[in-house]
């Protein structure tokens, strides 16, 4: 009887913990819980201020990860969802400091989240370090996809006018029919002197702009 009650209680807690209290999701692939975890981890991993003004929140990492998952195959989507679920709820087993340290990751304070992430990154368990490395890799890819970050580091990609080569007469853009190729032999870029790019040269249009 007591065991049964405990079981029902545990099940109820699990359902509430996993399913309730998340805001609506506006994403194609990320669930409400995924989005909350990514947003809270992004804020902890990349806080505002310092040499790079943009924060993980500014970089809208849930939107990036959603695009990444939409572009990925099903198996990767499943693995990433599992990873996010694991980090969100592993505080049950690896709690954050403080009285509420076993709360969901996304419900912790910023300081608690940083402490949890540091715990994962410095763990003596290889699997925990691996989970952290994977999560950080996903967040970092998204953070650097935010143009102001690369501009702040002066690492924005160069503006490059790709020359027209023979292959450009053969291949259409992905998904398009070869009839869409408008280039002809007359458009081929003639051989000529090639000059190295310049560090002070123009950057790609979609990365230009101010960091304000």
């Amino acid at each position: 009887m007591i065991l049964g009650l405990l079981g029902v209680g545990a099940l109820g807690y699990a359902v509430i913990r996993v399913a309730f209290g998340y805001p609506e999701s506006r994403y194609q692939s990320l669930t409400r819980a995924d989005a909350a975890l990514v947003a809270s981890a992004a804020e902890a991993m990349y806080p505002a201020g310092g040499a790079i003004p943009s924060s993980g929140t500014d970089a809208d990492l849930p939107a990036y990860l959603d695009r990444f998952l939409v572009a990925s195959v099903a198996r990767i989507r499943i693995l990433v969802h599992l990873l996010l679920f694991l980090v969100e709820h592993a505080t049950l087993f690896f709690p954050a400091p403080g009285w509420n340290g076993r709360s969901r990751f996304s419900a912790l304070s910023a300081d608690q989240r940083v402490a949890v992430l540091d715990g994962w990154s410095e763990s003596s368990l290889f699997v925990r370090r691996l989970v952290f490395t994977t999560l950080r890799a996903l967040l970092t890819l998204g953070y650097f996809a935010h143009p102001p970050v690369l501009r702040a580091l002066k690492l924005a990609p160069f503006a490059i006018d790709s020359p027209v080569v023979e292959a450009d007469l053969l291949y259409p853009r992905i998904g398009e029919h070869p009839d869409s190729i408008r280039l002809t032999r007359a458009d081929l870029t003639p051989p000529g002197e090639v000059t190295p790019l310049r560090l002070d040269g123009p950057i790609r249009a979609d990365f230009s702009g101010s960091n304000e």
Binding site: G50, A51, R136
Partner: peptide, 14 residues
């Protein structure tokens, strides 16, 4: 690392 310490290290990439 993570947090501000990580961001400081990012600033070293150049």
């Amino acid at each position: 690392g993570s947090g501000q310490a990580l961001k400081d290290r990012l600033a070293d990439i150049p």
